[in-house]
């Protein structure tokens, strides 16, 4: 019963974990600020759940970034050295 169920619900990569680390927030603190359970933050960070538009905007307001800077439609290609 995780957030991911089928290929139609493919995860949208996000930078929540990175931005949370930068903001020096714990999962519990971030969860309190955006009004979700701390478990949900874990699901989001692992890409196992795609948030609603309302929740995405709450993250946007909290981190002071546009939604598209937090959630990306395609995973960026990893740099190969």
């Amino acid at each position: 019963m995780t957030g991911r169920k089928s290929s139609e619900d493919a995860p949208i990569p996000n930078r929540i974990a990175e931005l949370r680390e930068k903001a020096k927030l714990s999962r519990v603190e971030l969860a309190e600020r955006v009004g979700v359970n701390s478990q949900t933050i874990g699901y989001l960070e692992r890409g196992e759940y795609n948030p609603s538009l309302a929740l995405a905007f709450r993250f946007s307001e909290l981190f002071g970034l546009p939604v598209e800077k937090i959630f990306v439609r395609k995973e960026k290609k990893r740099k190969t050295s």
Binding site: M1, V36, Q39, L55
Partner: peptide, 13 residues
Amino acid sequence: ALDERERGVRDTL
């Protein structure tokens, strides 16, 4: 008492 993800999980249950 639930957030949006949990509501989805509960409804699926």
